[in-house]
């Protein structure tokens, strides 16, 4: 039982595409970080769908008149996948960065005015620094 080259190419593209789509969704389930979950299906999904569309193109050339319509879907997916991934990443950042997770502002010890005050009175600069620090704490 022999197979033609087109059959082998179509079958290979189909198997690769299905495996990539499956791996992308397994990553969507298994990974722990939201950003890692974003990484898995966006790349593997587009690659898998691209492979399946290539299989469809080869099939149409092998068993019909041949058509390149599927390249339209492929180009569209390749163009829009980074845009949607960017939007989803922005949603993750927007929802995950709460006020408590932001880093604390650094201590204000390097102010240019501190030294002039410190020359007059050693306590004043420290007081200003503490006051600014508490202001930043209440703001954050």
């Amino acid at each position: 039982m022999t197979y033609s080259l087109g059959d082998i190419a179509i079958s290979l593209a189909l198997v690769i595409g299905g495996a990539f789509v499956l791996v992308g969704s397994i990553g969507l389930i298994k990974l722990r970080n939201p950003m890692s979950r974003l990484h898995a299906p966006t790349k593997a999904g587009t690659l898998g769908v691209g492979s399946i569309l290539i299989a469809s193109v080869i099939y149409s050339f092998a068993y019909g008149e041949g058509s390149l319509h599927e390249l339209l879907i492929m180009i569209f997916l390749f163009v829009t996948a980074p845009v949607s991934a960017h939007f989803i990443a922005k949603v993750h950042i927007h929802r995950d960065q709460t006020e408590q997770k932001l880093p604390k502002p650094p201590a204000d010890t390097d102010w240019a005015t501190k030294h002039t005050h410190a020359r007059d009175n050693g306590q004043v600069g420290g007081q200003i620094g503490d006051q600014i620090g508490t202001d930043a704490d209440t703001l954050s």
């Binding site: 969507l28 939201p34 979950r37 974003l38 299906p41 999904g45 587009t46 997916l77 989803i88 993750h92």
Partner: peptide, 15 residues
């Protein structure tokens, strides 16, 4: 989170 649900919907449409 909502972001995961959006991502799952996007993946489902591509699938």
């Amino acid at each position: 989170d909502v972001g995961d649900r959006i991502l799952a919907l996007d993946t489902m449409s591509i699938n």
